[in-house]
Design a protein around this nucleic acid. Structure first.
Length: 359
DNA sequence: TACGCGTGGCA
DNA sequence: TTGCCAAGCGT
């Protein structure tokens, strides 16, 4: 049983810390403005929360600004072309998020009159919005007292209670702990306060317990175990896979690219034609078109979530009437390496050295 | 339930 | 250089 006075003070202490230390972010309404009645734009909250899934604030800032400038509301985004959105998302990773982002925008326009639903359960029914994101939007954009549990909250709760069972098994228990602390007042600011605490003080390594607003009640701080929590089940080692990538440039400067299938790795993104990626040293030759391919020195190295990849790279100059096969020629003035996933950009950086007249 | 799914920064 | 880590979701 919780002590109501302690419970109330816990949330109040954190909110007071947040009022003085909230990080400034382009999608956030500062606590002083929020208290004065300002409300965040649900579209901006949703967009930022999806971008922030498993992604650092530093990486998200620029993407968020560009998306908001280009598609300022959900109707604009819903009307965008798939390829334009995928290109704007390129480099941010976890591309299923971008595909679901578009699906979600179109559902909101088609079935919710262009306005985001304001309850956790209705939000969670939308594509790409799971338990965390639904609770976060409901709390931050709609002032609902929902229990918001992300990696920061899990870490803070594990330390506060010195809970040593490993994740992900411990998640239900940590969620209960978070629920017991979530206040009815200022739920959005509270959710953002715990996340700011986890990001700036209760950090994964070397937590700054000396300046933490929850230092006194923290059980892990007392036990000396804070830096070791939360415990996590060990991860599997990443295998190394090998493949070949083919960078063909037509005489007019157009590049031969392929749109990857919607499902799976880098789904829906532009990329260079290539072989399968296999555990073997190198898969058999699989050039996309007949051409005098030249091997480029070195290899592109890239690490995905669950494997390391090494790509041998081949380049060729093609005639103006060359057959694109299953690919598509992108004119030189439309080709931007930044429209492609990072691994494909690495391939291009090496390939351009292999052309006689690298631009 | 466990796995597939990106990337960049850091020690 | 290598491994770990960051505001999870879908299947």
């Amino acid at each position: 049983m919780r002590d109501d006075a302690d419970f109330t003070r816990r949330a109040a202490d954190l909110l007071a810390w947040y009022d003085a230390n909230a990080r400034e972010m382009p999608w956030r309404v500062p606590p002083a403005d929020r208290t004065a009645g300002a409300r965040p734009d649900p579209y901006a909250v949703w967009l930022s929360e999806v971008m922030l899934q498993q992604t650092t604030v530093a990486a998200v800032r620029g993407y968020f600004q560009r998306f908001m400038a280009r598609w300022p509301d959900v109707a604009a985004l819903a009307a965008a072309e798939d390829g334009e959105v995928m290109a704007e998302w390129a480099g941010l990773g976890y591309y299923a998020r971008a595909r679901n982002l578009l699906k979600c925008a179109r559902v909101v326009v088609a079935e919710h009159d262009g306005r985001f639903p304001d309850t956790r359960s209705a939000l969670q029914a939308l594509p790409g919005i799971g338990p965390y994101t639904a609770a976060a939007i409901a709390a931050i954009a709609f002032d609902r007292s929902e229990v918001v549990v992300d990696g920061n909250v899990e870490r803070v709760m594990a330390r506060l209670h010195d809970h040593r069972a490993p994740l992900p098994r411990a998640k239900p228990v940590l969620t209960e702990m978070a629920a017991a602390l979530t206040p009815d007042a200022r739920p959005g600011d509270y959710a953002q306060a715990v996340m700011d605490l986890g990001a700036t003080i209760c950090t994964p390594k070397k937590p700054a317990c000396g300046i933490c607003p929850w230092c006194a009640p923290c059980a892990a701080r007392a036990a000396g175990s804070a830096a070791d929590l939360p415990a996590k089940t060990p991860k599997k080692a990443k295998p190394v896979r090998h493949g070949r990538a083919y960078v063909a440039r037509r005489r007019d400067g157009a590049y031969l690219l392929e749109r990857r299938p919607e499902r799976g790795l880098l789904g829906g993104m532009l990329g260079w034609p290539g072989s399968e990626w296999t555990d073997a040293q190198l898969p058999p030759e699989a050039p996309p078109v007949a051409a005098p391919w030249r091997a480029v020195a070195g290899e592109a190295r890239h690490t995905f979530t669950h494997f390391h990849l090494r790509l041998r790279i081949y380049v060729a100059d093609l005639a103006l009437d060359a057959d694109p096969g299953t690919g598509v020629f992108i004119p030189a003035q439309e080709f931007r390496p930044s429209d492609m996933p990072t691994v494909m950009r690495k391939v291009f950086d090496l390939a351009r050295d292999g052309f006689d007249d690298p631009e």
